[in-house]
């Protein structure tokens, strides 16, 4: 499985290259850069002179007179639409492991932990840390490779460094010890909005 970040970035780069390439092709011909700079585009190059058009009548006649042309266009469009739909849906669903194997390695048969139970436990313990106003925990990833995402909102007196240390010593260590899972954890810290004030 390709991670979503890699997939998205690859496809975005591909779409970007197509757009950039098409744009440059038109701009080069439109400003007549080939002739001005003495560049000879290779034979069969699509657009070369400023009075070229994108859809030449010769091209249109050549392609659409073929019997297979329109079925091929329909098939290609359908494939593109399906791929785009799949790509769009990949963004919507967030993969969650559902149940996590626990009980050491190899995991014991029949012993499973709901991901929501684990995230609730971490959330409760993290929310009880001093200087934490709100905690939100989510377990993502596949059952074999779960990951934890923690969002913390600190109070106005919070110290991110200290809170992070406490999170590591407290809830995360408890989770690690009680499940045997050593999950990569991503923490996002925010500070509760407050008017400017001077304390102490």
């Amino acid at each position: 499985m390709i991670p979503r970040s890699v997939l998205n970035r690859t496809l975005l780069a591909l779409a970007g290259l197509v757009l950039l390439g098409g744009g440059l092709l038109i701009l080069f011909a439109g400003f007549d850069l080939y002739r001005r700079h003495g560049l000879g585009p290779p034979a069969g190059w699509p657009l070369t002179a400023p009075d070229d058009v994108l859809l030449g009548s010769a091209d249109r006649a050549r392609w659409s007179s073929q019997g297979w042309w329109w079925p091929a266009v329909i098939a290609a469009l359908a494939v593109v639409a399906l791929l785009a739909l799949w790509w769009l849906l990949t963004q919507l669903n967030r993969r969650r492991p559902g149940a996590l194997p626990v009980g050491g390695t190899p995991p014991r048969e029949g012993v499973e932990l709901r991901d929501s139970a684990l995230s609730d436990a971490i959330e409760t313990e993290a929310g009880a840390l001093p200087e934490v106003r709100h905690a939100a925990v989510r377990i993502t990833g596949r059952p074999a490779h779960p990951r934890t995402r923690v969002g913390l909102t600190l109070t106005a007196h919070g110290a991110p460094g200290a809170t992070l240390g406490a999170l590591c010593e407290g809830p995360l260590r408890t989770a690690h010890r009680s499940t045997g899972l050593d999950m990569p954890t991503e923490v996002r810290l925010k500070v509760a909005r407050h008017p400017p004030h001077r304390t102490e």
């Binding site: 975005l12 970007g16 098409g22 744009g23 440059l24 439109g30 994108l54």
Partner: peptide
């Protein structure tokens, strides 16, 4: 292709492409 609309559209497409990259 040296029509104003075509050039504008091509420039916009190129800029969007750069942005995506």
């Amino acid at each position: 292709v040296d029509d104003l609309w075509m050039v504008t559209g091509a420039a916009a497409a190129g800029a969007a492409g750069l942005w995506l990259i």
